[in-house]
Write a protein that binds this DNA or RNA. Sequence first.
DNA 1: AAGCTTTCCGGAAACCTTTCCGGCGATCTT
DNA 2: AAGATCGCCGGAAAGGTTTCCGGAAAGCTT
Lengths: 313, 313
Amino acid sequence: MSTASRALNNRGDVSESTRRRVLQAARELDYVPNSLARGLLSGRTRTVGVIVTTILNPFYAAVVAGIQDVLGAKGYNVVLYNSDEDQRKELAAVEALIAQRVDGIILAPVQKTPETVELLVNRNVPFVLVGRTILGLDTDYVVCDDIAAGQIATEHLIRKGHRQIMLINSSRNSSSELRYQGYAAALRANGIEVDSRLVRSVVLHTDAERAVLQALDEGIRPTAIFCFCDAMALGVMRALRARGLRVPDDVALVACDNLDFTEFLEPALTTIDVPKHEMGVKAAEVLLSKLHKHKKRTTQVVLRPSLVARAST
Amino acid sequence: MSTASRALNNRGDVSESTRRRVLQAARELDYVPNSLARGLLSGRTRTVGVIVTTILNPFYAAVVAGIQDVLGAKGYNVVLYNSDEDQRKELAAVEALIAQRVDGIILAPVQKTPETVELLVNRNVPFVLVGRTILGLDTDYVVCDDIAAGQIATEHLIRKGHRQIMLINSSRNSSSELRYQGYAAALRANGIEVDSRLVRSVVLHTDAERAVLQALDEGIRPTAIFCFCDAMALGVMRALRARGLRVPDDVALVACDNLDFTEFLEPALTTIDVPKHEMGVKAAEVLLSKLHKHKKRTTQVVLRPSLVARAST
DNA sequence: AAGCTTTCCGGAAACCTTTCCGGCGATCTT
DNA sequence: AAGATCGCCGGAAAGGTTTCCGGAAAGCTT
């Protein structure tokens, strides 16, 4: 057994002739080493758990693709879980991953409480947050500079001459809070007051349409709208059409994420490109460096968003 | 050790008082059972491998979500691989999954050769194909009725009075071949000849735009287009706009898949709804029944597509 | 009171792999 | 030629869990 093991793993202490005999026998028997036994012995499984809110969101699909590109190339397996923004599901996923003895976890955390992250810290499981952070916790993370995203979008609109700029935001998570800050900062830097009636938060993406209709029907007349994400922009565009407002002539529109379909909308949507794939890549790289170099200090990666100007502004 | 095991698994042969003591100790020690050891002993890992071409395609994202909904509820883990339409990557993924001793595999196979599927058969790994089949192989699979999809789309256009109906198809895979058959069958059933100049196949989704431009510039003037999938329809719409043709007034357009964004396009896209999520659900259910009931006979599930009529026709 | 049943517990093996270490024969050194 | 070195091989343990089985103690039967 030990000789066979050495032969199969090129460990030396095996004569060339026996090595060949072992390899031949392995082929004949369709031998595939058992990762479970290997993992049990070594304590390492070459498996990483990934938890996102839902893979149905193309944003996270891109992040996961980036993660897989890096980890797959290094021979790591990816176990995928969806939290559906549900704290309990997230916790259950982490427990399952710990039971599986994954080497590490990449997590887009649900925002309510830091419970899950604390569990990871307590159990000493290497992990990296992606896309979202838990405020006030010193962890590894990879995010986009959401303040900059808000600023870039808002400044773009201001440069186009707009001063009545509505913000359709997502309900509070780390990104939406920061994008609001960027929005507000850009307004103030240009001598424009933040008008709270122009700022709306919605829980579900599908509520964006209703929020805009409601605002318009209250008599509010923005000349431009900055919208938290592309998915919400679809509803915003529909609401504007429903009230006979043309984009960009009557209302300019800029969103965020730069999902694939935005380019093909009519009018093509101006949006802030968030480097989704790269966020996945970086998160995987940070995790790998934790796994291999046993780094103790935490790493924070903040990626720059960029404006993609199209016809909607 | 054995008493503790029985206590933790509610196996009986443990007095109530010791059971409580064991559970208490487990809590104090943050005990989490080791799935590797368990799997090594039992030969079952409660893990299923899923291989799709790419999770970036929202179609497969929906399928994967359906799979996870079912398997997650039964306490199964999902290990995800992307093949990127690459035969070798697909094969490598299967080998890795076998090494991990997954209980089963759900696979949207790359089309070139049946090599991967034969490997699964030889190794006696339970598996279910989803979305695509390997012609001439008796396997479990879950697909949409692609002939019906082609028929429904084409008949819809015919009922709207169209006779010059162009087909922008994907290059050969099991779905595109069948959708073509449905298209041709619907035409013939209505006394219309299949005009081969009206049928174009493209390899990449992004080539659809070019194919339409080329056809138009050849002087071909369809009054309607049936397009293999929603993603390609984006390019088709852009090509039509570029040549000053309005949808649906000059050219009607119907696509296939019913991805989320189609509803929000201008004009909203008529498309054939393919029950993506349900395909994942069914595939997971078929696999589970193979795992638990040791069924020998294969199961084929063919789901019905349905027309979603919107403004583009 | 002797024998039986019942309840509960713990020892041991097995799952598959890798690594450490000792051993054996052959070759080299002086 | 005796001792040291080298190349190669195989035994044994370990990793964490579950299951089978035997045993001890207590309760029951007649």
